[in-house]
Every structure is written in C-alpha cells, then in structure tokens.
Amino acid sequence: MLQSKAITDYMEFLHNRYPDILTAIMEHITISLISILLGVLVAVPLGILLANHSVKWLNSFVFTIANLFQTIPSLALLAIMIPLFGIGMKPAIIALFLYSLLPILRNTYAGFTSVDQSILQAARGMGYSSLQRILQIQLPLAFPYMMSGLRMTMVYIISWTTLAALIGAGGLGQMIVSGIGVNKEELIITGSLAAILLALLTDRMLSLIEKKFSLNR
C-alpha cells in the first residue's frame, strides 16, 4: 500500500514538474552536444594530421597536453574556469570540451595509423591525392575506432555535465543539487535517472549509426 502511494506521488510529481524536467534535459543536452562538437572539430583534424605527418616530438607534446586535462579532477577544472570565464554554461562547456579531447584524439590517431600502409601505397600509385586517400580510404577504415572513442566520450561528458550545475550551468545536475539542498528525493531520483537514460540512449544511437555505416561499407 505504501509502495503504491509512493509511486502515485512520484507520478504526480513528474506531471507537475514536467516543464522544469524538460528544460533541465534540454540544457543538459545542449551543454553536452556543444562540448562534444567542439571536441570533434579540434581532435579529429588534429588526430588525422598527427597520423599522416608523424613527428615524434609533436605527437608526444600534443598527447601530453591532452592527457594533462584528463588528470585534473572534474570539479577542480570547473572551479578553475570560474575566474577565467565566470559562471554559467560557457565555463562548463569549455571544461567539458577539454575533457573530450583525449579519447577522440587517441581513437582518431589509432584508427588512421592502423590502416595498412600497402593500401595507401597502392592508392598513391593509382593517382589518389592526399585528401582522396584520407576521405576515401583512411576515414572509412578508421571510422569504427573513431566511433568507439566518440561513444565513450559522449557517455563521460553526459555524466560529467551533472557537475556543471555547481557553477550555475543548469542541466539535470541542477535538479540533483536542488534535491540535496531541500532534501527532496524526487528531484534527486529524477535528475539521476534522466542523466543515466540520456547516456544509455546516446550510446545506443551511436552504436546503431556505427553498425549502419559498417553494413553500408
């Protein structure tokens, strides 16, 4: 009986707070997507460049810098952003963008360097330009590696975005923080479950895209 009442009360809570929950989800998606897109725009071209123009000291330098951001605790990195960019979405996006760099960069580099050099030599002999070799040969073969990095990064970023609420960025983390502040379990449960489901759905969607690409190839 008590369990039935608890479920009824929770469903009523969801109905009454639906607009706020939807707003928090959209804010969470916005922060996560912008961070990931910036990471892809920077890390993918950089990974391709490093793979095709291997310079040992440059590779070491770039990966050291990208790895450095991963060693900084997420809460500490968000705190560092406050004096530089204030509070809100902007510092959260920049911090999460820095976190997204290493896995995307590493998997892009690994994917492009895994392509058999004899295939590239044959393509070069057939008159393929550097751009054609990248787009028509290396990119399709490296795509599974890249998608693996992107999937992992998306799950991480969606999870870490919950901490962005601590610097006023909003999102589902705001519901969790507010729930802890007023001791309201419904807010904590809703924010946590929504973040988990969002990460799982995103991973599933990217998995389907990867499989579709592999079948079409």
Rank of each mutant, 00 (worst) to 15 (best):
G149Y: 08
L166G: 03
F112T: 05
F85D: 01
V177E: 12
G171D: 06
I93V: 14
A169Q: 03
S148V: 05
P91D: 06
P144I: 11
G127R: 12
S130C: 02
N107M: 11
G170P: 00
L166N: 07
L120G: 07
M146N: 10
F97Y: 15
Q117Y: 05
G173W: 02
S130I: 07
Y128D: 01
N107C: 11
I137M: 08
A76K: 08
A110F: 05
L77A: 09
S114W: 07
L102P: 03
L98N: 02
T153L: 07
L78I: 10
L141H: 08
I176H: 01
Y99L: 12
V115N: 02
G111Y: 09
I87L: 07
F143S: 06
T162R: 05
Y99W: 12
A92M: 05
L172G: 13
T113P: 03
L120W: 06
L105Y: 10
Q174A: 15
Q174W: 11
S148I: 07
R106Q: 15
S118T: 13
L77I: 13
A76E: 02
L139R: 11
P144D: 09
L98F: 13
F85E: 05
Q132T: 00
M154C: 15
T113I: 15
Q117F: 01
L98G: 01
L141K: 09
Q117W: 03
A76C: 03
V115W: 02
M89K: 15
A169V: 04
M89N: 05
I134Q: 06
I176S: 08
T108M: 06
L172C: 15
R133G: 07
Y145T: 08
L141I: 11
Y145W: 14
S148M: 04
G149K: 08
Q136N: 14
G86K: 09
T113V: 14
Y128C: 07
A79F: 06
Y156N: 13
P140L: 14
Y156V: 00
K90F: 10
M147A: 12
V155F: 06
T108I: 13
M126I: 05
Q174L: 13
L141R: 07
G111H: 09
A122D: 13
G168Q: 06
F143K: 12
S159A: 02
Y99H: 09
G127Q: 14
S114V: 10
G111A: 09
L166H: 00
Y128V: 03
M89W: 09
R124S: 13
T161G: 04
R106I: 01
A169F: 05
I80A: 02
L131Y: 14
V115S: 03
D116P: 08
A76R: 10
Y145F: 12
S100Q: 13
Y109F: 15
M146S: 08
I82Y: 04
T161V: 07
Q138N: 14
M89V: 06
L102F: 15
I94W: 08
P144R: 15
I93Q: 04
G168R: 11
I82F: 08
A110V: 09
P103R: 14
S130A: 09
Y109N: 11
I158E: 11
P144G: 12
G88E: 04
A95D: 07
A92E: 03
A165L: 02
Y156G: 14
I104S: 02
P140S: 11
A164I: 00
G111R: 11
L135A: 02
Y109V: 03
P91E: 13
A169S: 07
G125Q: 13
N107D: 10
A165Q: 01
S118R: 15
L96R: 14
G171Q: 03
M81F: 10
A169C: 04
L96Y: 14
Y156R: 05
